[in-house]
């Protein structure tokens, strides 16, 4: 067989992935097996200290908390995104609605978090309103807990769930719902028996697009969370900037990578391989951003800007 120049065409992306994805990942793997340097950095003496340090209760608590918050927020996000995507797909004003979904991206991610602080804070808009309506005397504390983190995470990642769901539902043949109704299905049954199985790919994509970045979240729990809502991203930043324990930070990053990778592979196993939206798992890796040295909060969160 004649060999085409296909390999050559792939060169730019191979180069890109090697320099910006494989190499950093290898550096993180290497760092996690090295000795902690005096003022950050590493000494080139192999050790398993970092992995021994991981095996402590604090780390376990934060991991569990991260998984709970990430799963909960992802689930809520998808439950909100599904009807949104469905409505957009059936609407005559699709372009307008798409624009409305995308508009938040025009404002910097951090500014939008601070806007939430302005709304939810003790002197914030919501408390002002409650006091004005005479519903409360004392300001209610909305911020700095797990619920505030969940709320802002759902808000932040909702568009990432709506867009893939919309594009999948938009391709769905709605006469199938009528056929289901015709054959005796209630509205709810038509959705669970016919719509959901046929948009499975979109649901998987939406899950990945929200779960992966939320699992590596850093800025949101830092700004609107309290100690109880500490997430792995915050732990990494602390190890990097405060404890100056780079090998430990690297090891925790690898745990995040491992958990998300295994999660994705389990999902793919469970089905939906064929229909998974293009660029499903691979294209967005904001948790890598969180795992690399953080100069500023914005760059630490990676993607959403």
């Amino acid at each position: 067989m004649k060999q085409g120049p296909g390999g050559l065409y792939a060169a730019p992306s191979i180069l890109w992935l090697s320099v910006f994805f494989v190499a950093p990942l290898l550096i993180i793997v290497a760092y996690s097996f090295l000795t902690q340097g005096q003022r950050g950095g590493v000494e080139w003496k192999p050790t398993l200290d970092a992995y021994k340090a991981i095996a402590n209760p604090t780390f376990l608590t934060v991991t569990v908390n991260t998984i709970v918050v990430a799963l909960g927020a992802t689930l809520v996000t998808i439950l909100i995104a599904l009807p949104c995507g469905y409505h957009m797909a059936r609407s005559k004003r699709q372009n307008l609605l798409l624009l409305l979904v995308i508009i938040p991206f025009w404002t910097n991610f951090l500014i939008r978090i601070y806007a939430w602080i302005a709304i939810l804070g003790n002197e914030g808009f919501l408390n002002d309103l409650l006091r004005f309506l005479g519903l409360t005397d004392e300001p209610l504390r909305f911020l700095y807990n797990r619920w505030a983190v969940g709320l802002v995470l759902v808000y932040t990642y909702l568009p990432y769930a709506i867009l893939p769901l919309f594009s999948t539902i938009d391709k769905f043949d709605f006469s199938l719902l009528e056929a289901a109704r015709d054959l005796g299905a209630t509205k709810l049954k038509a959705i669970t028996r016919v719509l959901l199985p046929n948009i499975r790919g979109g649901v998987f994509t939406a899950f990945l697009f929200t779960f992966i970045p939320i699992f590596g979240a850093y800025a949101v729990p830092l700004l609107v969370g309290g100690t109880e809502s500490y997430m792995l991203g915050n732990l990494i930043a602390d190890e990097l900037t405060k404890s100056r324990n780079w090998p430990l930070a690297a090891a925790i990053s690898l745990v995040i990578t491992l958990v998300t990778t295994v999660g994705v592979m389990l999902l793919l196993r469970a089905g939906g391989t064929a229909t998974l939206g293009s660029g499903g798992a691979g294209t967005k890796e904001p948790e890598e951003g969180a795992a690399l040295p953080a100069q500023s909060v914005a760059s630490a969160e990676g993607e959403p800007a």
């Binding site: 043949d173 199938l176 009528e178 056929a179 289901a180 015709d182 016919v194 046929n198």
Partner: peptide, 13 residues
């Protein structure tokens, strides 16, 4: 009453 749809509307899954 049951319907035979124009595009058949068979459930692809």
């Amino acid at each position: 009453v049951n319907t035979v749809f124009q595009n058949y509307a068979l459930f692809p899954h």
